[in-house]
Design a protein around this nucleic acid. Structure first.
Length: 263
DNA sequence: CGGCATGTTGCGCA
DNA sequence: TTGCGCAACATGCC
């Protein structure tokens, strides 16, 4: 369940384990699990996140976790059986009590890496729009250099880490900007609207995810256009269109998401 | 059965 | 060197 807000929810859950000692890590999955250093025996000091990457800081080591498309972490008692699609099990102990963190991932696009130093993927991430804020001048400069559609550029993790397909679609709808607009044609005001749009959808999705954690009942997803192709635009009533950009689906309103772009 | 999916990487080609 | 399109990864769901 991964985009910035979902990963943030997972981070908060794992942060409950701060101060614990890693007592055991097990995985038979060579695709997901990459052991570059031994971290067993290390004490978990901090659970960080930038974009979609989780970074567990230990005394004498690091653990990086990426949820791919279908990854998730669940805290269980150590005696509980393996979960369906469980790929990694990490047991930690604090004051004699053992908690077993289970990483599940049906599609196995995720990664779990134990290492002694920061990995390239982490170092190459841009700022996190939620934790670090959005430097609009930098975003504009980045956009100015590209010819691709703004929607595709927003998915570049070196621009703003954590923006995925849904957030990009929703932010552009919030900003009333056509996702096909060549990035280089955006102006400062467009970038300002996109920044506002991103902050809004991140806040909205986080709030939704927080409710989901508590109330088990079904809550309506907070998305205005993602998953709503062929339905009326919530703003103007025009039928929402679905297109493919860079191999990913995009939904948008052909009427109110125009800005200054013309085909 | 066919098509689509909240992500990323790697390959071939212009 | 760079950018782009697309397949691949693996599985569930509609």
């Amino acid at each position: 369940m991964p985009e910035l807000p979902e990963v943030e929810i997972v981070r908060r859950d794992l942060a409950k384990l701060r101060g614990s000692t890693i007592v055991r890590i097990e995985s038979s999955d060579r695709r997901v699990f990459d052991a570059r250093a031994s971290v067993v025996g290390g004490v978990l000091r901090e659970v960080g996140r930038r974009g979609k990457w989780l970074r567990l800081e230990l005394d004498g080591g690091l653990v990086f976790s990426h949820l791919g498309m279908t990854g998730d972490w669940t805290l269980r008692r150590p005696d509980e059986a393996s979960l369906p699609f469980e790929r990694v099990r990490m047991d930690v102990e604090r004051r004699g009590k053992v908690t077993s963190a289970r990483y599940t991932d049906p599609r196995r696009f995720g990664r779990f890496i134990t290492t002694a130093s920061d990995i390239d993927a982490w170092r190459e991430l841009g700022p996190d729009p939620w934790l670090d804020g959005i430097d609009e001048e930098r975003v504009l400069g980045f956009m100015k250099k590209r010819k691709r559609a703004v929607k595709e550029v927003l998915l570049d993790q070196s621009l703003l880490a954590g923006v995925g397909n849904i957030l990009a679609i929703e932010a552009l709808w919030n900003a009333k900007i056509d996702p096909r607009t060549p990035a280089g044609r955006l102006n400062a005001r467009d970038v300002h609207e996109i920044a506002k749009g991103l902050r809004a959808i991140i806040a909205r999705t986080l709030a939704y995810d927080e409710k989901m954690v508590k109330a088990k009942g079904h809550i309506k997803a907070p998305f205005r256009v993602y998953g709503h192709a062929k339905e009326p635009c919530p703003r103007c009533g025009t039928t929402l269109e679905a297109i493919v950009q860079g191999g990913r689906g995009t939904t948008f309103c052909p009427h109110c998401q125009r800005s200054h772009w013309r085909p």
